[in-house]
Design a protein around this nucleic acid. Sequence first.
RNA 1: CGGGAUGUAGCGCAGCUUGGUAGCGCACCUCGCUUGGGACGAGGGGGUCGCAGGUUCGAAUCCUGUCAUCCCGACCA
Length: 567
Amino acid sequence: MKMSKLFVQTLREFPNDAEAISHKLLVRAGFIKKLANGIYTYMPLAQRVLTKISNIVREEMNATGAQELLMPFVQPAEVWQKSGRWQVYGKELLRCKDRHDNDMCLAPTHEEVITSVVSDVINSYKQLPLNVYQIQSKFRDEIRPRFGLLRGREFIMKDAYSFHTSQEDLEREYAVMAQAYTNIFNRCGLETKAVQSDSGAIGGSVSHEYMVLTDTAVGENDVFYCDCCDYSANSNHAISILPVNETDGGFEKEEIVDTPNVKTIEDLAKFLNVEASCILKAVAYIYDSKPAIAMIRGDKEIEETKLMNALNALEIRPMEEFEVEEFLNSTAGFISYRNVDKTKVKVVFDKTVQGMKNFVLGANEKDKHIVGANLEKDIEFVDISLVKEGEFCPVCKKPLKVTRGIEVGNIFQLGTKYSAPMNACYTDENGKLNPYIMGCYGIGVSRTMAAAIEKYHDDFGIVWPVEIAPYHVDIVPVDVNNEEQVKIANDLYEKLAKLGIEVVIDDRSDRAGVKFKDADLIGFPIRITVGKTIQEGLVEFKTRKDGVVEKISPDEAIEKCQKILLS
RNA sequence: CGGGAUGUAGCGCAGCUUGGUAGCGCACCUCGCUUGGGACGAGGGGGUCGCAGGUUCGAAUCCUGUCAUCCCGACCA
């Protein structure tokens, strides 16, 4: 490819509206162009990267026996009503109507369609198991798209769906997919960690997320992990062993005390001279338009995804102050679970509350708390607390660490979550109908591209891993008016191209500096400069990754390219 | 959903306070010169100033509304 013909525009400055480095570099190096918030055109350079990632995905998926297909992007409401998700999927599902006024939507995921298709085709246990996948655009109308391709509204995803006759067979396939995912990301040059996670809107029981761990902090997930064993989990799913804290307030009898203007746990602990862990904290929420109170030990915080699951809710938010008065007849800062009508207000107790004695509790009245309170019998405890760094690994009891992660893939064991409501069944050996046992497996292809940049860049631009670089080699003739330089450069270009190496020749009449800056910005793994030293029969060979420069003959340069690109 | 900021040429910005011919840098086109880390000179093309109302003889500028974008927050009592 001639640089002068490449459909790309690099910018001298970073765009003003980008925050994440991958977003800044993708725009500045001319890989993407924004059309609307969270919606981008993939320019030819980006498309080449996406194609390479997709091909790696295809090879590894095909190697497991999975088959590629392609499903509709615009879907009728009907299938979503069948699974029940038309009602429960929030505003992320972009809905619209066709000319006949039928409800339609843009696909955010494809469980419904694939379940429907498979149930038409697969009737017998003899045809199972089955794993099918596609690589395609998805649309999710995110509440806050940001970070360029890391959280766009339209994005490219590989989604696979497997169908089984037993949980054991699903687990076997799950392990196969886990290995395939590790292979895929390794081949993309990305080290990932498979962490336990909540299964979110997709549903199901067991799930893992593949995280690229990064220090650049645009990862939107907190990952807790243990150095001593392989335990790791998303914060929405992590559990821990707490350090031994005092949970006995030491008060001899239960009584109401004045706590004027003491609203926070910290102030209250100081005021009453007790540990925060001896205070029973009440946090009021609205879930699906109904009130709830989450009770948790004073030194711990609520993990809202866990709470959402405990409430079996679709969405939750903390109560406004006026709602505390309205629903709980109480005052923010002094809420007690004891005074609410439990037929109207759902009360959830966190596991950390278990074992608390003689604790401090809101008195449901402004400026008053109860001290020396104790729990009633028959209380059910659920884990709704957020793990903190330094708490201990649930497996090996060593301190947990936390880091940020970019989720590039996930795998779920769905079970019959979709097949049962959609009545998607096969006939077993005994002639009996059973719903398929399902799994699903996603990879964010466009996000993987962005994650690679987050991981591999420097002050000058992108540093692509060879496997997913848009091109391998950039040949720069320094002076395009110098016949010898141009001849050698063209010759190199032809020879490299003939060897199947993906090569760009920067034939633009710009000064060398311009070409070097663009080469670094775009991130070609190898740059071959043909300049003055050609009089001595030498070209300059430079690798983007380590910046090492060598002066070698054109033939040696060709050999070196082969060596680097094949290894 | 709440708060803050910003919308002026493909990109980055000035002009707005104090209303009066819409500017600068980069990019683009022509010519010259230059060619190892984003040169230089001369000339040139490109903008309904986000959109809609209003005030005014006159609005990028003042007022109202609206839309969009970015950032922060979304109550842990």
